[in-house]
């Protein structure tokens, strides 16, 4: 019996863009079904739907790798800037901030939901300050967004450079304090 090989490009995309502990099993299942169905359209449909599903799973479990999160954040910002490139810089920054805030908020909401499910103490490395928790990865995402937005301010609005530099320093100082706090108070 000759084996039918599924479309290589779709497999490559799912292997490299999709992720999660089951990605090998999913690729195996798709290859097995492809050998019987022999439909490239079906295979592409399955892989293209599998990629966003794997991201939602990772975000829900708080397992999205930092570099990938950084890549997604930067790509999102670039896309937003390209989409609104004909409007005023001030509104562009405002819109990007609002969308970034919504993005971080949704991530934190999804991660908050997973707290009830995951077992064990402090499974995702949150920092406890008083009665509230700051998710470390959420904080990193927010920090990246702030740095990118401030860079935009520095380039587009030179008169605000001093304010932006001060805000950046304050952000770095706050991050450093959180880091020190965690080292001394982590369970």
């Amino acid at each position: 019996m000759t084996l039918k090989h599924p479309p290589g490009a779709a497999t490559w995309l799912l292997k490299h863009l999709g992720s999660g502990q089951d990605s090998d099993a999913i690729l195996g299942d798709l290859a097995e079904q492809y050998s019987q169905k022999d439909s490239a359209i079906w295979y592409w449909r399955q892989t293209m739907k599998a990629i966003p599903i794997s991201y939602v799973r990772e975000i829900r479990r708080g397992q999205i790798p930092r570099l990938r999160a950084l890549g997604i954040s930067l790509m999102t910002i670039v896309l937003i800037v390209l989409l609104v490139s004909d409007i005023d810089s001030f509104w562009k920054i405002g819109l990007a901030s609002a969308l970034g805030g919504v993005f971080v908020g949704v991530m934190m909401f999804l991660r908050g939901d997973s707290h009830e499910v995951m077992a064990g103490p402090n499974p995702i490395g949150d920092v406890r300050i008083d009665s509230s928790k700051i998710p470390v990865r959420g904080g990193i995402g927010a920090g990246i967004l702030i740095v990118v937005l401030l860079s935009g301010v520095l380039v587009a609005l030179p008169e605000l450079r001093l304010l932006a530099a001060m805000a950046l320093l304050a952000g770095v100082a706050f991050g450093g304090l959180l880091f020190i706090w965690r080292r001394h108070h982590a369970p």
């Binding site: 999660g20 089951d22 099993a25 299942d29 079904q33 399955q46 939602v56 799973r57």
Partner: peptide
């Protein structure tokens, strides 16, 4: 969608 089966089973496994 095969991936959605794994996502649902993941939640059930939790």
């Amino acid at each position: 969608v095969v991936a959605s089966i794994y996502a649902s089973l993941d939640r059930l496994q939790d």
